[in-house]
Amino acid sequence: MQSPEKAATVKNKINFDKWGYIFIAPFFLVYAIFSLWPLLSTFYNSFFENYMVGLAQVGPKFVGVENYQTVFGNPDMLKYLGNTLIMWVIGFVPQLAVSLLLAFWFSSPLLRIRGNRFFKTVMYMPNLIMAAAFSMLFFTLFADNGPINDIMMDISIIKEPFRFLSSAWATRGLVGAMNFLMWFGNTTILLMAAMMGIDPGLYEAASIDGATSGQVFRQITLPLIRPIMLYVFITSMIGGIQMFDIPQILTNGKGGPARTAMTLVMFLNRHLYSKNYGLAGAVSVVLFALALILSIIVFKFMYSDRDGKKAKAKEKAAAKAKAEAAALEQAEVLAQEGGPR
């Protein structure tokens, strides 16, 4: 009775499994036409001389790596990479610090913060705002005769309006501040999810041992969320090298005073807009190389997660944290015994 049934299901499965290809076909078809082919074509184009002089088309003519020599020979490229990194750091460092602190407070079983959901909802909101509109808003708010200058003059911090967009560091600071506002809520939620996964027993043990919340944070929380912090760091960096909308709108595509707020993608956009395809191709390939290196790191992290290697790492980390907690306990005992009475 059983065997024919079994044979039937096996046969069914073989038949059904072909449907898998049909179900994934639209994705791969569209990906091939609209993403993969353009990507290959970008690489291909980077080896050709191809630009417009007025209305006259020059090229396409094969020139080998000449475009790359032009790009790397141009000190501007390095400057724009530097600008991109600086503005990313201005946004990311406070973002990570604030997110760590907020996530620790929100997830702490000892503090039991009220209105947790309200705060998270408000802090995530800037992430969904149109970056172009957000940037335009900052441009109007921080304009020479804008409300920020008005308010600062009203409470007599300054006498003359401060010209934010004429100062390189103020412009970069504004870009960094916008990136911070847009992303710290997102990072807080990610870190919080990681912190919620920590065994509450560890916190309880630490609290019984009389550890301060600073000690708990440094000795238990930080070591256990290191993998997710790496993930946040790298994905933010990948987002950082794509920085475009905010500085583009804030500086009207000109890159601020003396191009000190010009990013790599703004540079790429400029070449694309003026149909300078050879150089645009070379810049794209450089950006691709940067993103690829960073992506491989993330991919490795995620892949090891799926293999369950991370479960082992987690166990190790937990064991380490327990050991640390024990060491902490000993230290406390020693301190109490040896301390001045």
């Binding site: 074509s41 794209s284 993103a291």
Partner: peptide, 16 residues
């Protein structure tokens, strides 16, 4: 491919 930024292939995309 999830992490490949779309700006990178913009050149090929526009020409296509």
């Amino acid at each position: 491919i999830m992490l490949v930024p779309s700006q990178i292939s913009a050149l090929g995309f526009i020409r296509e």
